[in-house]
Every structure is written in C-alpha cells, then in structure tokens.
Computed example of a mutant assay.
Amino acid sequence: MSPSHERGREDGWGRHETPEERADRRWTDLLQELRVAQTGVQILFGFLLAVVFQPRFADLSDTDRAIYVVTVMFGSATAGALIGPVSYHRLLTGRRMKPQTVIWASRLTVIGLILLFCTMCSALLLILRVALHNALALWLVGGMALWFLICWFVFPARALARSHDRHEK
C-alpha cells in the first residue's frame, strides 16, 4: 500500500489527511474565524442593549423603535448562531463525531454570517435614520449592504469558482 493510502485519501487540494486529521484542521480553522466574529458581535450586541436605556430612546419614532427591536432580535440570533458551534463541540466531544460536528458548526457559522449581515444593516439603518432624518439613510445602508455582500460572499465565491476552474484543467 502506498504512503498516501496509509495516511488517507488526498482531498483534491494537495493534502493527504485522514478524515479525523481533516476534521481537526477544519475545526481549528473554524475556531479562529469564530473568535473574530464572536468578539465583534458581542460588542455590537452590548451597545444595542444599552441604547434602550439612553434618554433619547423615548424620542424615537414608532418606526425607529421597530427597527431597534428587529436589530436587537437579529443581534441576539447572530450571537446564538456564532456561539452555537461551541455548544456543538462541548456536547459532542469524545463521541467520535468530529467530522459531523465540523460540518454542522460550519453551517451554523454561515447562518451566523447571514444574521450578522442583517444585524449590521438594520443597526446602520437605525443610526442613519436618527442621524440624517431623511431618505439618504436608506441609500447609504443599501450601498453598505452591497459592500458587505461583496466582501463576505461574492469575493469568496469568485475565488472558489476560479480555484475549481484551475483544478479542473
């Protein structure tokens, strides 16, 4: 048997890993990504929670209050999704389920990124509506939403497509 068969199959990207080694590597990578995202989300969520206790909160219009409630709910859901992989790991550790854990934790992280997109856009909408008092706020949020989509999803999808094209040739 060749050394590559002893170590596991190649994953198509030049690595020779067993499924367990691949899961360990992917889990470590995921944890690093989550540390960055979780910190930002927790800080944002903390600021959102404090807004309701500010004196000017009583002066917000019904629309702005509704945007605030939606933003807090998105922030809460985002925190839950991005902290969720920790629970997966803790509850499933030692049960020989790491490859499955990594898959589900990765999916939960993508859901968290989508919720973070919603949280950021709604928080910007609230802030810009209060700051600008005009329709420009909606246009600015739309532009920023497009920027988030490009940075978070379009660039990675484009890189993935190019990578697949190179590997198919």
Score class of each variant (00 low, 15 high):
residue 124 L to I: 04
residue 128 L to Q: 02
residue 64 D to H: 12
residue 39 T to F: 11
residue 102 V to Y: 01
residue 75 G to C: 02
residue 23 A to K: 00
residue 1 M to I: 13
residue 77 A to L: 11
residue 97 M to P: 04
residue 22 R to D: 06
residue 167 H to Q: 12
residue 69 V to Y: 07
residue 97 M to E: 10
residue 65 R to H: 09
residue 87 S to E: 11
residue 45 F to P: 00
residue 25 R to P: 02
residue 139 W to R: 11
residue 155 F to M: 14
residue 113 L to V: 03
residue 149 L to Y: 12
residue 4 S to F: 13
residue 44 L to Y: 02
residue 5 H to D: 15
residue 44 L to W: 00
residue 115 L to S: 00
residue 7 R to L: 11
residue 46 G to C: 03
residue 90 R to M: 05
residue 65 R to E: 04
residue 157 A to R: 06
residue 22 R to N: 08
residue 158 R to Y: 15
residue 134 N to E: 11
residue 15 R to M: 10
residue 90 R to S: 06
residue 4 S to I: 13
residue 36 V to W: 01
residue 80 G to T: 01
residue 155 F to G: 09
residue 111 I to P: 00
residue 51 V to I: 07
residue 121 C to A: 15
residue 154 V to H: 08
residue 12 G to I: 00
residue 115 L to H: 01
residue 163 S to W: 10
residue 130 V to C: 06
residue 102 V to E: 04
residue 81 A to P: 00
residue 145 A to Q: 02
residue 1 M to C: 11
residue 109 T to Y: 09
residue 139 W to S: 10
residue 107 R to P: 05
residue 52 V to L: 08
residue 120 M to D: 04
residue 78 T to I: 03
residue 52 V to W: 07
residue 40 G to H: 02
residue 125 L to V: 01
residue 20 E to D: 13
residue 160 L to P: 14
residue 156 P to V: 06
residue 165 D to N: 14
residue 132 L to I: 02
residue 95 R to H: 12
residue 141 V to Q: 02
residue 42 Q to N: 10
residue 168 E to N: 12
